[in-house]
Simulated scan of single mutants.
Amino acid sequence: MKRDYYEVLGVGKAASADEIKKAYRTIAKENHPDMKPGDKEAEERFKEATEAYAVLSNPEKRAKYDQFGHQGVDFNGQGGGFGGFDFNEFADFGFGDIFDLLFGGGGRGTRQRGPARGADLRYDLSITLEEAAFGTRKEIEVSLSETCPECRGSGAAAGTHPVTCTACQGSGQVRMVQRTPFGQVTTARPCPTCGGQGTIISSPCAKCNGKGKVRAMKSIEVNIPEGSEEGLSLRFGGKGEAGEKGGTPGDLYVVLIIQKHEFFERRGNDIYCEVPITFVQAALGDEMDVPTLHGTTKMKIPEGTQTAKVFRLRDKGVPYRRGSGHGDQYVRVVVATPTKLTDKQKELLKEFGNITTLSQQMGKKTIWDKVKENFKDALG
């Protein structure tokens, strides 16, 4: 007695077409005769799953099966390569999928015999915040492969040239006939003699050992634009690995890594920093020199400035990479408490404290000041 097709594939009756297809591929790959030669149980599981997929992957047949069961899709007497199935039942897989399914993807392993583009390269370049902000030029050394100057990429020694592979007659492929549940299928795989190249090098080039490429160090000048940000990728066309058989070189991508600054912090195009000020500067006010990416500039400290106050210096940030103008710089001041005071200084501070209210010293009303205001009459 046949098992339920949904049970065979391990899916529910509401399974989508993609879920059914995925389930079948998994079972077929695990139990295909090429994967488990001589395993009769695996072969039966493969046939059973294939029969189930042939029905459930076809909307019309699936509807009949859901309504009438196995009797609605009886394949007896229909002919065909396997259990009455037509190879077209699996057309939705596409030829590449069927090839991968039946032969483990070998058909897609054939190497490209014509010109092939070279691989791209990545180079991480560390720069300072100032270099990122205002732009600069850097010269870097990149290790890459280039076309062998001796054989010009052919891989053959001077005076010789690659010869046509006699095993595959230059096609780079050998054909074989595979027995499948669908009948005989002719497949093509890379020629083992020439590795899919179609040619054989009998006298390899001594410089590149027949590879057609050699390693080299190349010096490349990198122009870093102003306003560059962390992770910016600069593309240099044709500066990557050499191509195969006359193919174009790949590209070089220089990725910028910005070093941490000891004083400034960058957020977008704005710059943030922290500057200490004295108690006297905070209390009486002052004008002080503040460092910026653009050089030292004057910043006014108003009388009675509190610690953690943030001041904005317009246009003192990083230039915009696109368009004109600059970001701003934000300066957070921190009032420093004096240490190692002399006796005279301590005496003056005590005198200052005696003649100064707590709210004056704190720079704001204290809780006690607010209580006295609210209960002024009651406290007299």
Rank of each mutant, 00 (worst) to 15 (best):
M1A: 13
G12T: 10
A17E: 14
K21G: 08
I27K: 00
A28K: 10
K29I: 07
D34R: 13
K36Q: 14
A42Y: 03
E51C: 00
L56G: 01
K61P: 06
A63R: 12
D66C: 00
D74K: 10
G77Y: 14
F82V: 14
G83E: 11
F85M: 10
G94Q: 14
F95P: 06
F99R: 03
L101A: 03
G106T: 03
G107T: 04
T110N: 11
R117W: 08
I127K: 09
T128R: 14
T128D: 12
L129T: 08
E130D: 10
G135V: 07
R152Y: 12
G153S: 12
T160M: 03
P162A: 15
T166R: 13
M176S: 12
M176C: 03
G183C: 11
G183I: 11
A188S: 13
A188H: 01
R189D: 02
C194H: 09
Q197L: 15
I201K: 09
K207Y: 03
K218G: 00
N223K: 12
E226S: 13
E230T: 06
L232Q: 09
L234P: 02
E244M: 05
G246H: 03
G250E: 06
V255T: 11
Q259K: 12
H261Q: 01
E262L: 07
F264L: 12
R267G: 12
G268F: 07
G268R: 03
N269C: 02
C273N: 08
P276R: 03
T278W: 04
V280Y: 12
A282K: 01
A282Y: 07
L284G: 05
G285W: 04
D289V: 04
D289R: 02
L293P: 02
H294R: 14
G295E: 07
G295N: 08
P302E: 15
Q306A: 12
V310F: 05
F311H: 01
R314M: 07
K316M: 15
P319T: 08
Y320K: 06
H326D: 04
H326W: 06
Q329Y: 00
V331P: 00
V331F: 00
T337H: 12
P338I: 01
P338S: 14
T339C: 06
D343S: 05
L349D: 02
N354H: 04
T357S: 14
Q361K: 11
G363E: 05
I367P: 00
V371H: 05
A378Q: 02
